[in-house]
Design a protein around this nucleic acid. Structure first.
Length: 566
RNA sequence: GCGCCUGUAGCUCAGUUGGAUAGAGCACUUGCCUCCGGAGCAAGGGGCCGUGGGUUCAAAUCCCGCCGGGCGCGCCA
């Protein structure tokens, strides 16, 4: 399908002076009756200064690609092409079944490296679904980059420093056997106490200072608390299928030669100064910042201790020096100004800042999530209830399976429910998270996608033999539903490219839904195993198999696995 | 107040980057399990695409104003 579009473009570009690939738009007509591919000529007519009817006449033979295009109709300013269904379907299905797990990849990242930092939550509590949005988007992007052939590494920045951690370390001395479950309560208590007790707060700072100065005992304590918390968080994220390659600890970036070089450059630009209270500060105005709000960026306190911004700059430079072609960081929208600031600092010194992928917050139906008001949805809580619900369902429907297998499937269903509910929304928009509908497993949900796969698997299982792979050049297409499904399959590679270009997994999610809908529609009108003729049966088996492969590939990019039955 | 993001069916979201009659799901109404899995399918009702201007053959999409929502705005991370 991609090839056909390419050929059409090539033919047109090489036959008219002064136009490029981008001048030729290719879309599809609104209805299947009107054809399969459409080329709007309005803009072209204007650019070439040729009246529409005349231009259309000239274009018709150029777009009539041999064996693939049966007929071309002109409707208004559009050229509508009708593809030869049997030939095109043969081509597409063959390609899918040959490429298997790689179908959909254009290998646009071959020979390139991608570095993605995501999640990086503060080690102070079990993650709620809002935090998990970062992990899901980041993980999905990592999968997409890998799929496109990028040598991809995933980094997790462990915020093992800072005032809050200092307080947490203090309070952990008072609590016996503080474990991950008790950590949020301890954290809240520590912060409350710091608010009411200045002495306690000061002790936190002192501890932090000792940590920075390299006091072994204190460092050990910090490590112990943050490591315990990180482990707990990772365990929950692991349930989602989220993995990381590197854990980079903030405490390793207290001092950085590279950053000090950057600061030297800033000094020559008049962008670095020590303010009247002895704080080492960057003035962003000489670097091109135009507003007063957020103009000053503090790096070190009066006592010389580093601020978060200093350490993070050092870390960002460290990542940048790894030479990735794509240096990406997934951040909540609350970090927009902050990232703008450090980007200015870095590019001011000639460094390439990372490319941010921002996402907006998850809101509950009742409003914002608030830890204090207790209306947060913990990721692990959601997974527990979803898994339990799914388990009951699986117990009813898959009686022949062992309880162990049933539980495994239920967990897969739970994960797909949350991942899909979050990933299907464009990152820049708020997700309004409705627990009830996320737990319903009906309609446009992850479990629905898994279900449509399970049905295909069921057909293939009943068939019992290998799908004949010696596909002839043509595949007999009987019904519109078959053809629409094949066309939808062929859109997958473009969808993936689109999604990686925009760094937006929701495009894949939308595609997966479309594909599932087209399939179930096909499923209800076209009997496969009971097809009227053997060759039609084979054709449909191949279409089923190609659909399953495409769906599995798409779902893999979203981090959703496909159970054999459910 | 200033900056960034956002506004599409009662609700939750799509909309191929400016193209043909704006699409799904939930909810509501009506059909469909002796027939490959009903976590499903088919059909119906439901829209001033927040609002007022502008740009052009063509605007939900681009520009400007206003209104509503999210986020941020120097010693936190």
């Amino acid at each position: 399908m991609l090839d056909i579009i390419k050929k059409i473009k090539n033919n047109l570009v090489s036959n008219f002076e002064g136009i490029g690939d981008k001048d030729i738009l290719v879309s599809s007509p609104p209805e299947i009756k009107m054809g399969d591919v459409s080329v709007p000529l309005f803009a072209l007519s204007k650019k070439l200064n040729i009246p529409l009817p005349e231009l259309a006449e000239k274009c018709i033979p150029l777009v009539k690609i041999e064996t693939f295009v049966d007929k071309v109709e002109r409707v208004g300013g559009y050229l509508n092409l009708f593809l030869n269904r049997d030939v095109t379907a043969g081509e597409i299905i063959k390609q899918v079944l040959k490429s298997n797990k790689l179908f959909g990849s254009s290998f646009s990242g071959k020979g390139k490296k991608a570095l993605i930092e995501h999640t990086s939550i503060n080690p102070n509590a079990s993650p709620h679904v809002g935090r998990a949005r970062n992990a899901m988007i980041g993980d999905s992007l990592s999968r997409i980059f890998r799929f496109e052939g990028y040598d991809t590494e995933v980094h997790y920045y462990v915020n093992d420093m800072g005032r809050q951690i200092g307080l947490l370390v203090l309070i952990s001395d008072e609590i016996e056997n503080l474990d991950f479950n008790g950590i949020l309560e301890a954290y809240v208590r520590a912060n409350q106490r710091a608010e009411n007790d200045p002495e306690f707060a000061q002790k936190g700072y002192d501890l932090l200072a000792k940590m920075e100065q390299g006091d072994e005992d204190v460092r050990k304590k910090f490590f112990h608390v943050t490591e315990m918390c990180l482990k707990g968080q990772l365990q929950v994220l692991k349930r989602l299928g989220v993995d990381y390659d590197y854990f980079d600890r903030e405490s390793n970036f207290i001092e950085s030669e590279e950053l000090n070089k950057v600061l030297e450059v800033l000094k020559t630009k008049g962008a670095l100064f020590v303010d009247e209270e002895q704080r080492l500060t960057v003035d962003l105005a000489p670097l091109g910042y135009t507003q007063e709000e957020g103009r000053y960026f503090v790096l070190r306190r009066a006592n010389g201790s580093s601020m978060y911004g200093y350490r993070d700059l050092a870390y960002t430079i460290y990542k940048g020096l790894m030479g990735a072609d794509e240096d990406i960081i997934v951040l909540g929208e609350d970090h927009k100004l902050y990232l703008q600031q450090i980007s200015l600092i870095l590019s001011g010194a000639g460094y390439k800042p990372p490319v941010p992928v921002f996402y907006s917050y998850i809101l509950l139906k009742e409003g914002k999530m608030s830890t204090r008001q207790g209306n947060v949805v913990l990721l692990s809580d959601f997974l527990d209830t979803a898994s339990e619900l799914a388990f009951k369902r699986v117990q009813e429907q898959c009686k022949e399976l062992s309880e162990e297998e049933q539980k495994l499937i239920a967990e897969q269903v739970a994960v797909s429910a949350i991942r899909f509910a979050v990933l299907r929304v464009t990152p820049t928009k708020n997700v309004i998270f409705d627990i009830e509908s996320a737990l319903s497993f009906e309609g446009d949900t992850g479990p629905y996608l898994q279900y449509s796969c399970a049905r295909i698997k069921s057909i293939l299982r009943k068939y019992g033999k290998e799908i004949p792979l010696n596909i002839s050049d043509e595949i007999p297409i009987q019904q519109d539903e078959e053809w629409i499904l094949v066309r939808k399959i062929s859109e997958f590679p473009l969808t993936v490219l689109n999604s990686i270009e925009q760094r937006n997994p929701s495009i894949i999610a939308g595609y997966a839904l479309d594909l599932a809908h087209t399939f179930t529609s096909f499923y209800h009108t076209c009997p496969v195993l009971q097809a009227e003729k053997e060759e039609i049966k084979e054709a449909r088996l191949q279409i089923c198999s190609a659909t399953l492969q495409t769906m599995q590939n798409a779902l893999h990019l979203l981090g959703i696995s496909v159970p054999e039955r459910m």
